[in-house]
Simulated assay, not measured.
Amino acid sequence: MSVSTPSDSAETTALRTTPLHALHLELGARMVPFAGYSMPVQYPAGLLAEHKHTRSAAGLFDVSHMGQLRLVGADAAAAFERLMPVDVIDLPVGRQRYGLLLNEAGGIIDDLMFVRRESDIFVIVNGACKEGDIAHIQTRIGQRCAVQPLPEQALLALQGPQAADALARLAPEVQKLVFMTGMDVRIAGCDCFVTRSGYTGEDGFEISLPAAQAETLARALLAQPEVQPIGLGARNSLRLEAGLCLYGNDIDTHTTPVEAGLQWAIQKVRRTGGARAGGFPGAERVLAQLDGRVPLTRQRVGLVATERVPVREHTRLENMDGQAIGEVTSGLLSPTLNQPIAMGYVPPDYAALGTEVFAMVRGKPVPMRVSAMPFVPTRYYRG
Rank of each mutant, 00 (worst) to 15 (best):
16 R>P: 02
22 A>G: 00
37 Y>K: 03
43 Y>V: 14
43 Y>E: 09
44 P>S: 09
45 A>Q: 10
47 L>K: 13
49 A>C: 02
49 A>S: 11
57 A>H: 14
57 A>K: 11
58 A>K: 07
65 H>G: 06
79 A>P: 01
83 L>P: 01
93 V>P: 00
97 R>T: 14
109 I>G: 01
119 S>M: 04
123 V>Q: 00
124 I>E: 04
131 E>S: 15
132 G>I: 06
132 G>F: 09
141 I>S: 03
147 V>F: 10
150 L>V: 05
150 L>F: 10
153 Q>R: 09
155 L>P: 01
157 A>V: 08
158 L>P: 06
161 P>F: 10
170 L>C: 01
171 A>Q: 03
173 E>I: 04
189 G>E: 00
197 S>T: 15
203 D>N: 12
210 P>W: 04
236 N>E: 14
244 L>H: 13
248 G>Q: 13
251 I>Q: 00
252 D>Y: 02
262 L>E: 08
275 A>W: 03
281 P>N: 07
285 R>L: 12
286 V>E: 08
292 G>H: 04
295 P>E: 12
324 A>P: 04
330 S>M: 11
336 T>M: 05
342 A>P: 07
344 G>V: 08
346 V>M: 12
348 P>W: 15
349 D>R: 15
350 Y>N: 15
370 V>L: 12
376 V>F: 06
378 T>E: 08
